[in-house]
Design a protein around this nucleic acid. Structure first.
Length: 515
RNA sequence: GCGCCUGUAGCUCAGUUGGAUAGAGCAGCGGAUUUCUAAUCCGCAGGUUGGGGGUUCGAGUCCCUCCAGGCGCGCCA
């Protein structure tokens, strides 16, 4: 935690809110810089450079060995030299001080079990998965959860669709439900359950589809701590319990035979139905029940990752949750859509019509590493175009290989060298190129913390690509094996391997031994 | 109409909760291998950050407005 260490030098200036220690872009400006002087020009009534000088006088006596300071244009620039790098590398603990909430529920994908997973769902999946991994890495206690909507109307439609196909198979007369599911997989389910009793088809087909989904998730390296079924939530009476609380607090009223939640009190466009006039509860009330179940298990903060078509849902689910927790505990993150394209032209994506790109197909075609990288390569609020032909054609240019190749080169050096890396205590000096790489290693934990706080996993991917670039350049210019510095450089090589392995584990990109 | 998101190089995108000279990949052009893996590296070229106004030491980033695109607005989930 090099950034925190530098910031601690400025103990007298903690009141300055937007003080930042930034990683410098240009090496002439040092490794890190502080913008503090700019923020204090008013208070000190003098120019940034003058302020910087005063600040420097304050901290000069506290500077540890290996930390050099230069003042430039009002910036306070820090140069990290080997003695300081060494002391950081020798520290055992990461030194994260995460403040506040540390028991977080992270819910993502949460699809209807009405068909196999597709590429669109995989985006939110990969995003949530990596975010969860990073949270765990920085020491936050987080539960990754998948909510299975195995109840309600969509389930009924699924069952009806299958029954209709079974009748077709048997040559009986049947009418396919108007909004039924038309995908090919319905035929295969129909064949599986052709001799099944009508009553059990619903449950068995859901079971089957959930298994498909779980195997797809495994295939692309997305993992959950827990799966929760809507049917479980309903059978345990959670929706009713929430309903009672909402009633007690006076947020429920009856109109047209239905029960409504006063979500408009919380900034929603209009009120929302909790119980339909036919007595059935809505998806919304069941979902509130699910959130109550999360709350009951002691979670202090909930994060839901949803698709953009759900943004109209945010207000009401936040409002409902706030009523029974008494606090604003729910945070909703929208991961933007994936546009499926075919030869540059936009393709209609509809689950019911059965026209969508199956996750399994894509993974088989381009591989999990390439797909994950492709999905993580953009900010989650950026719409992403996915063209399967193009993705296949360009898969060789995918950054996943660039990262993996760097690791393969590193591991190859270790294999081929017959020497041992130098003990860190015995390393007296390093070159500038090595120093730059060590700085990347030092900053790694800071970067993860930043990416986690901002909930932007793509930052980690970009960072690893940047380090890989720095290493590939190093590799072209310096030899490890057979030179005087071999053992020192072996130490660097092993440190880099550790960092890449850690980073790629968080991203669930596989680490090759050779390529 | 209202709400949310987006607009940065020919294309696809990064850009530090406002920081120094806006960066990468692809595409284009030109180079580098008797030495640990060329799935690599180096160089050249490419920009009115959608338009306009504002806030300030400083704006791609914040505010206002206009333009363009996407998504949502159900007693579906």
């Amino acid at each position: 935690m090099i950034v925190g260490f530098i910031k601690d030098l400025f103990k007298d200036f903690l009141h300055v809110k937007s003080h930042q220690i930034l990683k410098s872009k240009l090496s002439e400006n040092g490794d890190f810089s502080s913008n503090l002087a700019f923020l204090l020009t008013k208070e000190y009534r003098s120019s940034p450079m003058e302020v910087a000088k005063k600040i420097y006088n304050d901290i000069a006596s506290k500077l540890p060995s290996g930390l050099r300071v230069e003042l430039k244009n009002g910036y306070i620039n820090f140069f990290i030299e080997w003695p300081l790098i060494k002391s950081f590398l020798m520290k055992k603990e990461k030194g994260y001080k995460h403040n506040g909430v540390d028991y977080i529920n992270l819910e993502y994908i949460s699809s209807n079990p009405t068909g196999p997973l597709n590429v669109v769902q995989a985006r939110a999946g990969v995003y949530g998965d990596v975010l969860g991994n990073m949270m765990k890495y920085v020491g936050i206690n987080v539960g990754k959860e998948f909510y299975i909507n195995d109840a309600g109307r969509q389930r009924m439609l699924l069952t009806q669709s299958i029954i209709a196909r079974i009748k077709e198979l048997k040559g009986e007369e049947s009418t396919f439900p108007e909004e039924g599911y038309k995908g090919d997989y319905i035929f295969s389910l129909a064949r599986d359950f052709v001799d099944e009793s009508i009553d059990s088809i619903g449950e068995k087909s859901i079971e089957e589809i959930v298994n498909w989904q779980k195997s797809s998730l495994k295939k692309i390296g997305i993992f959950f701590d827990k799966f929760v079924k809507e049917s479980f939530i309903r059978s345990k009476g959670y929706p009713e319990r929430v309903l009672e609380i909402l009633k007690d607090k006076g947020f429920v009223y009856e109109r047209d035979g239905a029960l409504w939640f006063k979500s408009s009190n919380f900034g929603d466009d209009k009120d929302r139905v909790l119980v339909r006039s036919n007595g059935e509860i809505t998806y919304f009330l069941a979902d509130l029940g699910y959130h109550f179940y999360k709350y009951e298990r002691g979670y202090k903060h909930f994060i839901n990752i949803l698709g953009p078509d759900h943004h109209g849902y945010i207000k009401r689910i936040k409002a409902g949750t706030e009523v029974f927790t008494g606090q604003d505990l729910l945070e909703v993150i929208i991961v933007q859509q994936v546009n499926l394209k075919e030869n540059g032209k936009k393709k209609r994506f509809s689950k019911r019509e059965g026209r969508f790109v199956l996750l399994d197909e894509v993974v088989d075609l381009i591989g999990s590493d390439v797909l994950r990288t492709f999905l993580l390569l953009r900010h989650h609020e950026q719409i992403l175009d996915f063209d399967i032909e193009l993705a296949q054609k360009e898969s060789m240019d995918n950054p996943a290989y660039y990262l993996q190749y760097a690791v393969a080169r590193l591991k190859n050096i270790v294999r081929k060298s017959n020497k041992e890396p130098l003990n860190i205590e015995d390393i007296k000096e390093i070159g500038e190129s090595e120093r730059r790489l060590f700085i990347y290693i030092l900053y790694f934990d800071d970067l993860i913390l930043r990416a986690t706080q901002q909930k932007e996993p793509h930052q980690l991917l970009y960072y690893l690509i940047e380090v890989a670039k720095e290493f590939h350049r190093y590799y072209e210019n310096y030899r490890v094996i057979g030179v005087d510095e071999e053992q020192m450089r072996l130490f660097l090589v092993e440190a880099l391997i550790k960092m890449f392995v850690k980073g790629m584990e968080l991203l669930s990109i596989s680490v090759p031994e050779r390529m």
